[in-house]
Design a protein around this nucleic acid. Structure first.
Lengths: 150, 150
DNA sequence: AATTCCAGTTCTATTTTGAAACCAGAATCG
DNA sequence: CGATTCTGGTTTCAAAATAGAACTGGAATT
């Protein structure tokens, strides 16, 4: 069927994640889902995606357990797509992408949106990496440790 | 005539980020770069990517300031590709993807690799989101605030 | 000097995508 | 109620991206 390369079996969690949500549209659909978009037509007009693409993406994301379809909340007989727990788990990925985008992809004079606490309006702090015992950590102090199974 | 869609101008940092690194191969190349891969042939055999694809991806990533090409460190006349500061800024995206992948894409009995401190071997802690004043935060407590500039 | 290695480019066949036309069932209008 | 529009797709087709193989030319190795 799909001749496109997959690195699922390489055993790298990053490769697996990209296998699931690494195509062009998936993360944008998920971003919109985090923003409260639920209906086919909302995704379609909001993203400017072709309907055929959207249909297959929504189906794939649903099959993969990232979205699920539920009866529409407005009482109509239609259905809507909402994030599952697994899908909501991608929020930190979105935040990381957002922070990187804000840092590197805006001219200084360009207006930016920002992510804030709904109640207080206080912005989200930068994500940071620490060891499990709480010490700050830097990318060049890390390595990937293969765990032999069992 | 049919241009591939770009959401750069939507003003969303996530959309911009995906515009730059959102295609199928880029993040995998960047992942390998974080793992110390530098040479064309290393990327190529490591990823199983077609040479033509790799060549255009490396060019694009270089043009976009994520990689830069430098004289080879082994003394030969070849060149190698290394992450710029902007590229290294994607580390948290990788960590977020990795943690999500570990959480949701492995069967319980499957071996996983993990990211640890080079010195101590202590694993990296889970990323978490906090407000700037240090209170933990959840995805459903956030909203995107548009900033009108100037 | 001949051979192999490296980093590509070029070519072609196959997939994927984007856009538009079409469609059936649900909802809305008059 | 019947006619019309809305919703959520599917089908169709051309254009673009991709995988893979063959080819290239300079660098390194023998």
């Amino acid at each position: 069927m799909v001749k496109r390369v997959s690195l699922w079996d390489a055993g790298c969690p990053v490769a697996r994640a990209l296998d699931v949500i690494g195509d062009w549209w998936s993360l944008l659909i998920i971003r919109d889902a985090f923003d409260g978009v639920r209906r086919f037509s909302e995704f379609q007009t909001g993203l400017g995606i072709a309907k055929g693409m959207l249909a297959t993406r929504l189906r794939d994301l649903t099959e993969r357990g990232i979205l699920e379809s539920a009866p529409a909340s407005d009482g109509t007989a239609y259905r809507e797509y909402v994030l599952t727990a697994k899908g909501r788990g991608l929020f930190l990925v979105m935040v990381a992408l957002r922070q990187w985008g804000e840092d590197h992809l805006y001219r200084p004079d360009e207006p930016k949106s920002s992510l804030v606490d709904t109640e207080t309006g206080i912005p989200v702090a930068r994500l940071e990496m620490r060891t499990e015992d709480g010490r700050p950590m830097d990318w060049n102090n890390t390595r990937v440790k293969k765990i032999e199974d069992r």
